[in-house]
C-alpha cells in the first residue's frame, strides 16, 4: 500500500505494508540510516526521531500511524539547539562507539527546546530512555549543560 510521509520537510511516497515500523521505512526505503535499530521494542532509544516535535521511538510506530505527522530525523535536524548540541558533543568527545548517539541527540534537542536550562533531574528524565552501552552518560550530561549555557548566553 502507498503512503505519503513528511520527512525532514519533504514529502515521500512509499509503498509499504502498513504495519512496517517507521524505522525500517526510514532506513531501508528512504536511506536515512542515521536512525538506528537497537532493540525493536522501544527499550533503547537508538531509533529516536521527532514526530510533530516530540521524541518518538520509530521502531514501534507503524508507518500507517505516521502519515499525518511531521517526521524529523537526525539528518534533518536544524536550529540553534541542534547546532549547540552538536558542537558540545564534539567539544566533549562524547561518542565512543557512537551507535546510540543519533538517538541521544534527538532526545537532547527535544529537551532543550522544552527546558532552556535543564537541571540534572530534567536530564535524567529526558535522557533515561536512551541507552548507551559505552556509558558515555557523564559526557552527555556535561555536553547538554554546556549547550544550554551557550544558548542562554547567545539570546
Amino acid at each position: 500500500m502507498s503512503y505519503t510521509l513528511s520527512v525532514n520537510g519533504r514529502f515521500h511516497d512509499v509503498d509499504e505494508d502498513g504495519e512496517t515500523p517507521l524505522l525500517w521505512v526510514l532506513r531501508d526505503s528512504l536511506s536515512l540510516t542515521g536512525t538506528k535499530y537497537g532493540c525493536g521494542a522501544a527499550q533503547c532509544g537508538a531509533c529516536t526521531v521527532h514526530l510533530d516535535g516530540r521524541p518518538a521511538r520509530s521502531c514501534s510506530i507503524a508507518v500507517r500511524a505516521a502519515v499525518s505527522a511531521q517526521i524529523v530525523t537526525i539528518e534533518g535536524m536544524d536550529g540553534a539547539e541542534a547546532v549547540a548540541l552538536r558542537d558540545a558533543w564534539v567539544k566533549h568527545d562524547v561518542p565512543q562507539c557512537g551507535f546510540c548517539q543519533s538517538g541521544q541527540i534527538m532526545s537532547a534537542i527535544a529537551l532543550l527546546r522544552n527546558i532552556k536550562q535543564p537541571t540534572d533531574q530534567d536530564i535524567d528524565l529526558a535522557m533515561s530512555g536512551n541507552l548507551c552501552r559505552c556509558a558515555t552518560y557523564t559526557r552527555i550530561r556535561a555536553a547538554i549543560h554546556d549547550a544550554a549555557a551557550k544558548l542562554g548566553t547567545s539570546t
Binding site: R27, T73, R86, W89, V90, D93, G98, Q101
Partner: peptide, 21 residues
C-alpha cells in the same frame, strides 16, 4: 589527542555495517 570521529558520530553520518546499502 582527541577523537577524529566525534562529528560523524554526532550527526548520524558515521556508517556502520547495519547502514550498508
Amino acid at each position: 589527542v582527541r577523537r577524529k570521529d566525534s562529528l560523524a558520530k554526532s550527526t548520524g553520518t558515521q556508517i556502520y555495517t547495519q547502514d550498508i546499502q
